[in-house]
Design a protein around this nucleic acid. Sequence first.
DNA 1: AGCACGCCGACT
DNA 2: GTCGGCGTGCTC
Length: 749
Amino acid sequence: MPLILEVALPVPLDAIFDYLPHPHTAHFRQALGCRVQVSFGQRKLIGVIVGHKQASDISPAKIKPIEHLLDLDPILDPGWLAKIRWCARYYHHPLGDTLFSCLPTLLKKGEPADALQDQIWFTTYLGQQIEAMPKTPAQWRLLQMLRQHPHGLEVSAISAQGFQSTQLHKLRDKGLIDYRQEPKLTAQVSGPLLAEAELVLTPEQTSAVQHIQQAQGFHVFLLEGVTGSGKTEVYLQALRPVLARGQQVLVLVPEISLTPQTLHRFRRRFACSLVALHSGLSERERLEAWLAAKRGAAAIVIGTRSAVFTPFANLGMVIIDEEQDASFKQMEGLRYHARDLALKYAQEAQVPVILGSATPSLESLRHALAQHYQHLQLTQRPQTNKPTPPPLQLLDIRSLKLQEGFSLPLLKRLDTHLQAGNQVLIFINRRGFAPALTCYTCGWLAECPQCDARMTWHKEPPRLHCHHCDTQQAVMLTCPHCQSEDLHPLGWGTQRSEAFLQQRYPEIPLVRLDRDAVSTHKRLQTSLQQIQQMQAGILLGTQMLAKGHHFPRVTLVAVLDADTGLYSSDFRALEHSGQLLTQVAGRAGRAHQAGEVILQTRHPDDTNLLELCQHGYSYFARRLLEEREQLSLPPYEYLAILHASGKTREQVHQVLTEMAAHLHPYIQATRGVEEADSLIQAQGLNAIGPFPAPMERRKNRYHMQFWLQAAQRAPLHETIAASLRYLRQHKQARTIRYAWDIDPWDTLG
DNA sequence: AGCACGCCGACT
DNA sequence: GTCGGCGTGCTC
Ligand SMILES: [Zn+2]
Ligand SMILES: [Zn+2]
């Protein structure tokens, strides 16, 4: 009986490839989930066996045999494989490429899937009984030490005591001691699970913990609580019984909050093994963590977006902190959303999920309001924490003179807070010195030669820098257009405000936090420590200030320009802007002192801004939901965006236009047309475009978009699949790059 | 994606 | 003459 193996390969082709079993390996039935080396065209590739069948659809002459079987035991179990299959289908991404983008790099390269082993030395029966024997004093001391460790001792601990491996082997030759091999990371921790006492909870926290602990099977909780309301303590107490049952917990956190402090919070509480998957890990450490989770040796796995692909032996709960955070959505390649995948996986594993947020996404809020999720709200802050955040005050700067972006009333408030020995936090949404460089004589603006964008002016090092393609130029001294020397910065960036504030407050320490200032993790940690030690001080920065870190001495929060995002073409801009402003505002206030939040604006009458300031995020978000429903936008309807780019605008336009025409039968019955003779028509599918993307030219490529909007998932996915079938057989489509973004986070792509 | 093959322009 | 540009075809 001819048996054909189906192999997934790391190629962007929507196909699985058939191979014959290894000539000398009879164990092919167990090979599902094992890696193989195969010849593919002219190259050698590592693949994964994802299935088998009796016969192939292609000519037997073309089928090659597998060259090597790399794993004796599968590295992927059928459950994990099923998840990857679902993910590939949902995001319309090739299975092979999906599977490989989820694996640790060392496994992709074909390294053995073996955990690092420890030698554990222990005394034999003879070694325990023996009383005295002529041997060197060192060997005697070594034997005595091992006798005190009935479960054995790692070789690293033994050599740390100054013993040599020859001494170990001498004793072993005498039959007094022996060793066994064990993976380095183990779950076994002796003693009680709780390593520290649990904090006293507020009534709201208590109720939240009880609800979560009582959950049976798949159940989603939206834990909504302002900054400092104690969400983390709820996570910790909710997951304790899960660990006590011997199950594992997955904790997903935004990129910026995976800090030593966050990890410490978990490590300090539980005497159990915890692995953190962060960008600082070496490939070996990443593989060790992955394997530890897979064999159940990691009780808690904390990680960022990609940690959602960690395999678990016995998953018991999933926690997603700051579930609205942008970093959970991958924006290139496999454009997955870690929160959405985690929800899907938890449903499969029948385990509860906690979505935590101070500013929930409209997606999650909608599910909570529709009772799909259980809404748990924390409105009080525990006494030890800051008081409830102060209201947001709008400061109308239309008629005010600005000094480097600061109005006089704002500067006066800065003076007051700094004189009182407090810290102030200033939020500016642009890094660099100024977002543009302009000529006062002729109006020329420094633009990127490769993009439809202005060059950002940086002072240190002095350079013009495009934030979209990384092009850098020296700062010119004369205008290239009119030779005038009248060149000036336009707008304010963090470096410009830094210079201004240092000059205005020379005595007061200032820390700038943005991508340029904290390019490494170390520098960020140093800056944060500096802030902890300051009395009066100025914190200045971008988004980074809004997330994660706590600044206990800040009493004034100022937003230099609250208007970005109010009039953006992106339909999610308002939601994100409201979340960001609320998060920044949450940094204000000390333990026994209410804070102050000031937003400079040129639109003090803007309804959205007023609602956010007067009624808070919860109310604001509910209003946005109503708007989205009226406009049939997510989360009420589903959206997918096809991003395409090419060397010329015409190329891209032509291919997309032809594709749109081809999709016409799927779409023709757009809203309002009464021709319900097919499922698609009955369910309404809207096509928009093709049209030039915002910032059409990027890195010298022309970008266009094509949108599909639908009330139901099924027809949307059917049409996307049809579009890909069409593009794959289209000759000229090969000259352009294209990719669908399912459930896009923003419309820029 | 990668890699080969094939067909034209412009160089040591 | 050949080096190298990229259009086209293919990968079990
Ligand atoms: Zn000029
Ligand atoms: Zn650019």
